[in-house]
Design a binder for these strands. Structure first.
Lengths: 122, 122
DNA sequence: TTAATATATTCCTATATAAGAATATGTCAA
DNA sequence: TTGACATATTCTTATATAGGAATATATTAA
């Protein structure tokens, strides 16, 4: 089986760094024509169009035609699933001291186990 | 150019849903042997090993050997870049009312533009 | 040593890129 | 109509899966 299509869901769509760059341009909530994105990111027009196409398929951006331009706008709410998912791990890095302490304790535990059971160090 | 390797960064690594399932098993912070993950997720052992291998390469999990088992543990801090990135869009869905209002206003604006300039509806 | 258990690795195949080049499509302006 | 401009699409190519099957490796127990 091959990797899931980039258009399968938002997780796959945002995996590509250039797509996150495109999103960054739209992050102010304003609408942008394809060529404005092209100029700002120094990518080729087809490249930008394709990336916008992927983002559009997963709903992260929406388009409206205006004259000969197509104005793209961020639909940030579609990123919420990513936020919801990763937010469940937030506690692991918010309390830095607790985290460091926990890590130290774990390491100590592992060392003891190594000596006792004879398992190799990582 | 092909898609970036799944082991390029955490964004690519977590794009695969089964890898997020594996992460979910480890989410309680305890350590798990490969086979425990296999049993819980009903995936084949090689599949689990491979997914854990990808997560290990990007640092999301770490391993220590204990006897004939390899104990995997979540290294949740490695997910922070994802959190940091998506967090910048949080405001777009936290204030639901504001969001809905904004969306309505935008739609209205678009409708006016359509009538005025003659652009087609999305 | 040998068998059993746990895990990783290799081989295979269908599939899906991402980017560049070339081209098609659509829209406006004269 | 014709040309200029904006954007999308098609084609090509190198590359990277994900999973299943088979196998290799490592560790423990008898």
């Amino acid at each position: 089986m091959a990797r899931a299509a980039t258009t399968t869901d938002v997780f796959n769509a945002i995996a590509e760094p250039r797509r996150r760059e495109v999103i960054a341009v739209l992050a102010d909530g304003k609408e942008y024509a394809v060529n404005e994105v092209v100029v700002r990111l120094q990518m080729s027009q087809p490249t930008v169009s394709k990336h916008l196409g992927v983002l559009r398929k997963v709903g992260v951006v929406s388009v409206i035609k205006r004259g000969q331009h197509r104005m793209y706008r961020l639909n940030a709410a579609e990123l919420k699933p990513v936020h919801d998912w990763v937010k469940t791990f937030e506690r692991y890095w918010t309390h830095q001291l607790g985290q460091i302490k926990e890590r130290a304790e774990r390491k100590a535990r592992e060392r003891i186990i190594s000596k006792t059971i004879g398992a190799k160090e990582e």
